[in-house]
């Protein structure tokens, strides 16, 4: 039995379908109409102690919903979650003292209070012993470079500062497991680096088990070795980062920039990803498609400004996986 066992969890949201206008409102009042939204469908996975797992997937894929179930806030409709013998949503109080959660989009700090006061409050809430609190605080202060804003009220912090404070807050009580839901959202390049290094250090040194979601593939590349891809509520990939690359082994990527807005027509055996109207990526297997043929076809058909050949980076592989899912779904 693994440290974290998730078996066949599903979650459906009930969305009330609002009609607009006064008649619609009245109709709603008397005959409410609901639509079911299956946010998570039959997802299973297991995670060992000390692992670091990245969850990616397009908007609305069900990542946050999964994190909320894992952290005990939401009850799954069906299926089970077991974390070292505890059921998060049932043994909530006991469970949450052992985990830390960061929601990038939502601060858990006291809006009105200086950051340090929020930390003191958390110290009382989690009964953190003085020495542990001091040790952790000093360490996080340094690693996340917080001394400049620690005395400022949270509402006066910049997004990146707030995020760092939120991350430190979630880790003050030395949790065994940490869930991050988009911890780098809206943070600048330097800030992102600081956060990634922090996460990596904590995982390496303290063996903290970590799960995080992100839209930034660099987050994954720099921190995780395991990747879970979720799309439309289902798990579509679970394995190493290299595994994803290997799936596209001998593939090549041709980035083509057009002079003017161009509609690209299909080409046999070539996967086309339209980045924008003037930039498309052509991903193909070097063994099946001859690069010369492809190039001359493109140069002959379109008004090309620039071309760049590379091995597909992880970002475009993922993009390709997403877009294929959308077609299939």
């Amino acid at each position: 039995m693994s440290f974290i066992e998730v078996s066949n969890i599903s979650k459906t949201y009930k969305i009330s379908k609002r009609k607009s206008g006064v008649p619609g409102m009245l109709a709603n009042l008397f005959v409410p109409k609901y639509e079911n939204k299956e946010a998570v469908k039959n997802v299973s996975f297991s995670i060992e102690k000390g692992e670091m797992v990245g969850f990616v997937g397009p908007n609305g894929a069900g990542k946050s919903t999964t994190i909320k179930m894992l952290s005990g806030i939401l009850y799954p409709d069906t299926g089970e979650i077991n974390v070292s013998g505890l059921i998060p949503y049932k043994q909530r109080k006991e469970y949450v003292s052992r985990i830390g959660v960061v929601f990038g989009q939502k601060s858990q700090l006291q809006w009105d209070l200086p950051v340090i006061d929020s930390f003191e409050l958390l110290k009382a809430i989690y009964s953190i012993p003085d020495d542990v609190y001091k040790k952790n605080l000093d360490r996080y202060m340094e690693m996340l470079d917080m001394d400049k804003f620690i005395k400022q009220p949270v509402r006066q912090l910049s997004l990146g500062q707030r995020m760092r404070a939120d991350i430190a807050a979630a880790l003050l009580h030395s949790p065994e497991i940490v869930f991050f839901d988009e911890p780098t959202i809206g943070v600048d390049v330097v800030g992102k680096d600081a956060i990634r290094n922090f996460i990596k250090d904590l995982n390496a040194e303290d063996g903290v088990t970590m799960i995080f979601t992100t839209h930034d593939m660099q987050d994954i590349e720099k921190t995780c070795n395991r990747l879970v891809i979720i799309s439309e509520g289902s798990k579509i990939y679970d394995g190493t980062l290299d595994g994803v690359r290997k799936l596209h082994g001998s593939s090549r990527q041709l980035d083509v920039y057009f002079m003017n807005d161009s509609e690209v027509a299909e080409i046999p055996d070539v996967e086309i990803v339209e980045v924008d109207k003037r930039h498309s990526q052509f991903i193909f297997d070097g063994k099946k498609v001859h690069i010369n043929d492809l190039m001359s076809h493109l140069l002959g058909t379109y008004n090309v400004k620039d071309i760049n050949i590379s091995e597909p980076d992880i970002e475009s592989i993922i993009r390709k996986i997403y877009s294929r899912e959308k077609v299939a779904g």
């Binding site: 909320k68 952290s71 005990g72 806030i73 109080k93 949450v96 003292s97 959660v101 939502k106 989690y126």
Partner: peptide, 13 residues
Amino acid sequence: DGSISTELLRPMS
């Protein structure tokens, strides 16, 4: 506003 999640993440009643 969804901040009930923060409350539920605290190990207290």
